[in-house]
Design a protein around this nucleic acid. Structure first.
Lengths: 194, 194
DNA sequence: TAAAGGAAACCGACCGGTCTGTCTTGCTTG
DNA sequence: CAAGCAAGACAGACCGGTCGGTTTCCTTTA
């Protein structure tokens, strides 16, 4: 593992637990066993390090949450699989993201201070909502939803419920509460299926 | 308005937008038109200032969200009223809490760094969930819920959906998305009522 | 009523420490 | 030997918090 990879990995751990502002370059150096010069050889600023870390985080997000989600499955099942992955693979990943969902932490921390960075995170949220919307619309076209179900409303419900679950898990680290929150969303999905 | 009141008020504004760590004592001083000595005359540390601000924030939370919520109303209606208040009075309050729900911001920021402070915020969450639980249990005893509805699950759904709505609103400041998120929760409540 | 006294409010220079980011130095490796 | 990288001293800004001095205001007393 190269120094650069170690730096990004440890930065991700620290940013996810302590946040961006409260994580110092020295913290990252220390955890990666590097020196200041070593770090600034690879990244021209702390912000650039964050951007690299974010990119890695997105990769992790996809690996964890899209695992076992097949385009051939019924769209509603794909969404359920994603929710289960959030509960079983993504949020409890103590090694890569011990602080919980780094996107939630960062968007809350940075939205009023670093709008550009926050906008980049928000972009990811919009893409995720887009994915949910496409899946539900397909399900609706296939006739899998009860009549009268509004896709946008369901997407909002799932999405905000999921973000809330991330906050709760960040705050209390209780797998029980996390399970409850995800289950209530799964149940809601079942209730609109026919 | 005394200096102490001004300090707490401006601290609340800054903590809610920039977070605790990134708000410097000098920021608060500057906004309140005070000096360092003036501030430390009233608060023995930055942490104590935060505790005072939190106490004020709880007062504001009650004023905004419990407004028009009468114990005589049907419990389900009381909950709906709270959700509407979140949408119409609490979150869009640009003057007192321009950064959105300060409890969400703080618990995300501090849970891994200042466990004591985070626990205090979490305490408020637990009390709020307790309130929702009591109201729904009363509604159930009164026979107002469809058979088979599990109170704990509904509480979790409402609570995590509400937290998620706070995150979304913090991140995009869109009243439209906020309205959607709250409406989907209101609809869910209607769907379990009989 | 008016002067005196004292406590509290307030001010801002200052402290030690930490932050991000730069720069020179020396080692390592091909 | 030359190129690239790690190391850590260093700069300059800013942090939370302290402290001595000044102002304000209210109470006491003649």
């Amino acid at each position: 593992m190269t120094l650069k990879e170690r730096l990004v990995k440890e930065a991700l751990v620290l940013f996810s637990t302590k946040g961006y502002m409260s994580t110092s370059i020295s913290d990252v150096m220390a955890r990666a066993g590097s020196s200041k010069g070593g770090l600034y050889n690879h990244f021209k600023s702390k912000e650039e390090l964050l951007l690299e870390a974010l990119s890695t985080a997105r990769k992790i997000w996809r690996e964890r949450n899209l695992d076992g989600v097949s385009p051939d499955d019924r769209p509603l099942l794909q969404i359920k699989r994603i929710l289960e992955n959030y509960r079983d693979r993504y949020l409890p990943d103590e090694e890569s993201l011990p602080g919980g969902c780094i996107f939630v932490s960062l968007v809350v921390e940075l939205s009023h201070q670093e709008p550009r960075l926050a906008a980049e995170v928000n972009e990811g949220f919009i893409r995720f909502k887009g994915l949910l919307t496409r899946l539900l619309e397909k399900e609706q076209r296939d006739g899998g939803l009860k009549p009268g179900v509004e896709v946008e409303r369901v997407v909002t419900m799932i999405f905000s419920g999921l973000l809330g679950a991330c906050v709760i898990y960040t705050s209390d680290k209780s797998k029980e509460n996390l399970g409850l929150a995800i289950d209530s969303l799964l149940e809601h999905l079942s209730s609109i299926s026919r």
